[in-house]
Amino acid sequence: MTDPALPGVIEDPHTAYIAWSYALAALSLAGLAFVGWWRARHWSARAKAALRAEAEGGEAEEKKASTP
């Protein structure tokens, strides 16, 4: 049966709305998860790099200070 208010829509309109609802739910959760994961990976890498650079910087200074 077609929905009178929506002439010409596929035979059973309800499955379309249900499908869209679940697809959007999945999309939004997956999108949030992906963005969260990508940002976490990006920032942890950057933090590691910065801390390592700082550590190396520290060692370089110690070497400089220790050599007369």
Binding site: R39, W43, S44, R46, A47, A50, L51
Partner: peptide
């Protein structure tokens, strides 16, 4: 990621 961001 926010904590890593602050540290970085």
């Amino acid at each position: 990621s926010l904590i890593h961001r602050r540290q970085a």
